[in-house]
Each structure stands twice: as structure tokens, then as C-alpha cells.
Design a protein around this nucleic acid. Structure first.
Lengths: 314, 314
DNA sequence: TGTTATCATAAGGTATTGCTTATGGTGTGC
DNA sequence: GCACACCATAAGCAATACCTTATGATAACA
């Protein structure tokens, strides 16, 4: 059986009017054109759908069944159009994001505002480590990833969209805190608490010191950012982290920024996608949003942080 | 938007395999043919449905929506086919009958057996008088009518399918009952209770006597068959009715058949339809059923009646 | 780096679709 | 019986649907 939507459409009109001529007028067709469509439909089901008795037309039993079917099918088509239309105009959609755990804090702020502006959109946010992020991209299981330092050569396309200042922090009682200015040579005498091998922050720091032809002593490496900060608070050593993760600690004064020469190291946050991936409409909009508007949104919570920075360099 | 079922079918296969080549094999098509169908579908909705990243294919959000739609639509089409198939093979359907009130009794017996053989069929039965029957036929509100003597010239097609013996009956105490053989001349001395002008039974009787060049005296005419029999039981006169309506009375011996020469008059029951009406499948089957099998079914209840007939002519 | 698998694109041909206008047939009602 | 309204049928035509084969491009993988 090979019906066409056209046949159903025409049949519906005929079934409503029970009059080919009027149906033809409604459809802006000639009367034989209508007759033919109905006839073809009848051939498809190999049964008469309409019977003519005297002057009047009647639907047969099968005709009534077909009429119900036609109407239901056409309604579904309308629903589909509507749904797709909404998807295209972003009334609906599913934004699948993944972010590095260090980025979690400020991405949530970005998302909160974005979600507010697009109430019907579903958002998935996965917070995980670097290697999982790359895995997600590879499997096409997310639209966009936000991370600190994307690797080259994975068929990825990365765009920096926000400054990411890495700062040296220590507990308030630490002797370096009192100093107005700390040189790198002084700094490397300290013992470092630092992220695990393979972490984006870790490799950024390593590249920095390598560039200065200096080495630092690792006291402790951990994979949990919160644990690192806690160890630092306890005075186990100094650490280098994205200032964006320090909001709470700076406010509570459990950690302070050390004013080291050459710091902050200005890295960036990147939005990353698979090369060649055609982004969904909603993902495109989100990407535009963070590329263009992230600074403004973020500034509101980074401003107080930068004040800490200024204080430390006073 | 002008989708085709073909596009949906092909898209479904592709969406299931996420592989054009395999889909092509399943569909016994070349691979480009499959690509084209999908592409055309994408053009219809003006949105990509499938995206290719590296080697793998993925459904877009809209693609998933479309896939759901395609599957649902195809399932409905299958359901429709099934329903129509059942209708055609009479698993379903609606049989609309109308019968003359005098035929009611035995038609119910026919219907009971028929309904039993076709459990899913809906049956409407209208029991009414002659003029209403013709009206129903005229408005195409029933498939078939069963009546005693259909009129000519109403664009009707009538087929006799069962013997309809008209007999003279009287109350058991009536003097004619005692006689072995009653001549017509003797009979017309009696006073008759008879159906109203226009009734099928009435006109059959009138034609019979006119053929014999005799006239009968009407004591009472009534439109209700039961009332006629009751008046006869009370001894108001004799009457002539279809023997098929006498089952109860003969069994209860409240009426007896008078053995008149030339009686029973063998008329017929007819099945009547509008000329040119294409009967629904179920109506066709019902018509065949009564044309071929009515005698056998009816015989079981008419046999005892014919015994009464034999007794009266002994 | 070459091979393999896979999809996209192009060109070409045939069948079918979907209309049109013209015309014929039929039931209804005056 | 005639006119009217309405549907069926036929012929003709342009558009396009649908498939094929041939070929090109690209990613994965050895």
C-alpha cells in the first residue's frame, strides 16, 4: 500500500463536503483532479471509500475509517511541523555541555542567565576531568566543552573566550603573604601543592616554569581542586590555581594571593567543539552568547577577585 | 511541507542503522538512492536530520524527532491496513437491517445465528412498517430490508428467499375448525379481521381473492399484528396471516389453522436493496447467507408449524 | 602512505504523478 | 421530457520522482 499525503488531504476535503465539485473549489483544483485522487486512494486500499447513490455521496465503512486515519495523520504532520519549527527557533532543544571541573563555578553562572533567557530548553551539564571531556567530544555526546587548555591535533576547534588568571595562593599566615613582591626565585623555594599529571592547570604551570628555566618542588599532587585548596589553607604549601575558583576562599580570607613577579599568568578558558560538527541551533546560540557576553556576565563576580589581586600587589 | 511515505520509510531504515550502505541493502536500493531520499526529506524540513562526524553518523535533535514521527506514522499505516483488511474480510463492519414487523420473529432467529458466526460485527435492526422501510431504503440508511411484498418501480432490487405461507386461522372453538375441508365460498361467509390498507399481507390477500373473483367481508382492520391475533382468539372473526408469526399461538393452542381449499397461499419473504447500491462486504455476506441458508435455519422452527398445517388438512 | 569503507555528487533515463480541458453519463426536479 | 447539477472518463502534457551507474572526497587504519 503506497498512499500519499496528497491523497489523504484531498480525500479529507471530499469526505467533509461529500461533494467533489465543492471539494475541488476548496482545493483550487478542477473536479476531475479530485476524482482522480480519490480513485487512486481507493485503488490503494482496493475498496470503495465513497459510494454514490442517486445524487448523494456517502462514505462507506472503510471510507469512514480512512477519513479518521487521514485526519489523524494530517494532524500529526501539523504537530511535527510545529515541533520542528520550535526546535529551529530555539523554543525547544537540548544543549549538551561538558566543563572542566575547575571551570564549573563560573560556567554555572553563565548557564543560569542563559537558561533564564531560554526557558524551554533542556540543558545537560557534565562536570568532569580533562580526559573524559575529550572522550565526550570524541563520541559526539556533547555539543560544546569548556576547558582551560585544549589539546592540539584531536580534530578539535577551540576558541578562547575568557581570561583565566592563574595566581599563587597561600594561607594567610604564610611568610610570603607579608611580602610586597615575591620573585620567582624566592617562590621556587616553596613546596607546591598541585594538580595531577595531565591536568590542564598542571601543564600550564609546567610550561610557565619551563619557559623561565626554573623548576618547582612538588610536595603533594591531588586531583581534587577543593582538596588542594584545603591543603593550602592548612599550610602544607603554596599552590597555583585559577583565580576564578577562589571566590569563597578569598571572601572568607582562608587563602590569600601571593604577589609574585610575572603573576598572574593569563591563560584563557576555551569553548571547544569537534571540528566540522554542525552545531545545533541552540548550541550555536549558546556559543555566541559566551563568546560575546561572557565577559560582562562574569565581570560581576570577578571584580571583587581582581580587588584581591590589586591588594596583593600593593 | 510535502513529505512522502517513501522518504519516511527510507529515513527510518537509515536512522536505525546509521549507515547508508546497510540501509540501501535492506531496502534493495543503491546507496545514492538512499542518500537522495534522506536529502529530500531534509530539504522538506529545511534542517539537517543526520550529521556525519568522522566516520560515524548521528541523528540531530530534529532527526530524532523525525524518526519518532516516521515510526509512529508507519505504525499507524500498518494499523490502518489491518483494520481495512479486517473490514474487508468481515472481521469488522456494520450491518444495517430493517425488517417488516411481521418478519421480525424469524429474522431474529436468522440474525442470532449470523451474529454468532461473525462476533465482531455490529448489527442494527430496525423493525418497522412498510412505508418506513421504503423510506429507510430511500435515504440509504440501511443496507438491506426484509419484507413480504416489495413494491415495483422504486429503484429497488428484491429477491425472494423464503416461503411465506399465509394461512387462515380462527379460535379453536370456531365452527370452521371442526370441518375437514372448507371451501372458499364457505370461507367468505365469515367476517374477517385483517391488516390495514397498504400492508403487504393485506394486499396479498386482496390479490388472492380478486383472482378468485370473490370478495370478503372485513369486520375489523388493525395495524398491529398481535392485536389482530388477539381479536381472533376472542372469536371476533377469522384472519389470514403468515404462518411464521403463529409459533406461540399454535403451541399454546389459542389459535388453530383452518383447512381452506387453496390455502396456504404461498407468498415469499424478500430481501430488498436499492438498485445500484454497492453492498458493504458484510451486507453481501449476510445476503448470501439468507439466500442460501435461510431455509435450513428456518426449517427447524417451521417444521412444527407445518405439522399444524397437516393436522388441519387431515 | 596506500587501502578500504563509506557517503556525496553528477549525469541520465524512465515511469509516474498531477494537473488541465473536453466530453459523456446519470439522477433530480420542473 | 428537458435542463441542470454533478460525477466519471479520456487525452494530453509538463514536472518530477526515483532509480541507476560512475566518480569524487574523506576518515580510519594498517
Amino acid at each position: 500500500m503506497n498512499l500519499t499525503f496528497r491523497q489523504l488531504k484531498v480525500f479529507d476535503v471530499v469526505a467533509r463536503h461529500l461533494n467533489y465539485t465543492k471539494a475541488a473549489k476548496e482545493l483550487h483544483l478542477s473536479q476531475p483532479a479530485v476524482s482522480m485522487q480519490v480513485k487512486q486512494l481507493e485503488e490503494q486500499v482496493d475498496t470503495p471509500l465513497i459510494e454514490k447513490l442517486g445524487k448523494k455521496l456517502y462514505l462507506t465503512d472503510v471510507g469512514m475509517e480512512m477519513h479518521n486515519y487521514a485526519r489523524s495523520t494530517m494532524q500529526q504532520l501539523i504537530d511535527l511541523e510545529e515541533t520542528i519549527g520550535q526546535m529551529k527557533t530555539l523554543q525547544q532543544g537540548h544543549l549538551k555541555l561538558a566543563v572542566a571541573s575547575t571551570a564549573n563555578h563560573f560556567v554555572i553562572r553563565l548557564l543560569a542567565r542563559f537558561a533564564n533567557a531560554h526557558p524551554k530548553i533542556r540543558i545537560s551539564l557534565e562536570v568532569t576531568n580533562r580526559s573524559s571531556l575529550l572522550d565526550l567530544l570524541d563520541k559526539n555526546e556533547c555539543d560544546l566543552v569548556i576547558m582551560g587548555s585544549p589539546p592540539d591535533g584531536h580534530n578539535l576547534m577551540s576558541l578562547p573566550f575568557l581570561e583565566n588568571p592563574l595566581v599563587v595562593v597561600a594561607c594567610p599566615e604564610h611568610r610570603l603573604i607579608a611580602k610586597k613582591k615575591v620573585t620567582l626565585k624566592e617562590l621556587i623555594k616553596e613546596e607546591f601543592i598541585i594538580r595531577e599529571e595531565g591536568s590542564g592547570t598542571r601543564s600550564a604551570i609546567e610550561r610557565f616554569f619551563a619557559g623561565q628555566e626554573l623548576a618547582f618542588k612538588t610536595k603533594l599532587d591531588m586531583s581534587n581542586n577543593r582538596a588542594i585548596k584545603h591543603a593550602t589553607e592548612e599550610g602544607l604549601g603554596v599552590t597555583i590555581v585559577s583565580m576564578h575558583t577562589l571566590e569563597l576562599e578569598l571572601k572568607a580570607k582562608t587563602l590569600k594571593i601571593v604577589n609574585v613577579e610575572g603573576f598572574p599568568i593569563y591563560r584563557h578558558w576555551y569553548v571547544v567543539q569537534r571540528e566540522g560538527k554542525r552545531l545545533s541551533p541552540i548550541a550555536t546560540v549558546f556559543k555566541d552568547y559566551i563568546m560575546e557576553g561572557a565577559d560582562d556576565v562574569i565581570e560581576e563576580f570577578t571584580r571583587p577577585l581582581y580587588q584581591h589581586l590589586e591588594q596583593s600587589s600593593r
